[in-house]
């Protein structure tokens, strides 16, 4: 069981290294998705399937797709088609796909093997997460929503057109 953790962890570290060393935003984002999936697998191995699912749905699914869309949309113009063709050259896929395949194989093994979890693991079910979120940590949820409000206002101010241009 432990070797599985080390494989997933090294995939995450490798992918993250590529994220920060890559010169191209879209390619770096591909690696970032792999890194997030790897950490989701680590969550699963540690006995938190719910957190793993959230990691994939929220981060790898929603936020990263949004990232890629925004980066792609920012580059509009006549050269865009040519540029996108260059971005999607087959060579680029090899690295992230290899890492993703490692993770896929590992996930298959974990699900198929069905061996007992190691003794010191406690499985955290969605219900327990929900109870603690809306019980003792209720104030924390409200605080997090205020945090989002602060980020939203800041982003809104930074991103809006100046008064002169609008009129």
């Amino acid at each position: 069981m432990e070797i599985l953790f080390y494989i997933a962890a090294s995939v995450a570290v490798l992918a993250t290294l590529r994220v920060i060393t890559h010169l191209h935003a879209v390619h770096a984002l591909l690696y970032l998705i792999v890194a997030l999936i790897a950490s989701a697998l680590i969550f699963y191995l540690l006995g938190a399937p719910f957190a793993a699912a959230l990691e994939i749905i929220v981060y790898a699914g929603a936020i990263m797709v949004l990232f890629i869309f925004v980066v792609m949309l920012l580059n509009q113009g006549p050269l865009t088609v040519e540029q996108e063709r260059r971005w999607l050259s087959p060579g680029i896929w090899i690295g992230p796909s290899l890492l993703a395949f490692v993770l896929l194989g590992e996930a298959f093994y974990v699900i198929m093997a069905e061996h007992a979890p190691s003794h010191d693991l406690v499985y955290v079910q969605p219900k327990e997460v929900a109870i603690s979120l809306y019980g003792p940590y209720m104030i924390a949820i409200e605080l997090a929503s205020m945090l989002l409000l602060a980020g939203l206002i800041g982003a809104y101010h930074m991103g809006r057109r100046r008064g002169k241009e609008r009129r």
Binding site: L143, M146, L147, A150, G151, I153, G154, A155, H157, M158
Partner: peptide, 8 residues
């Protein structure tokens, strides 16, 4: 909360 507001 303080830091994110301060970025803006």
């Amino acid at each position: 909360l303080i830091s994110v507001s301060l970025y803006g």
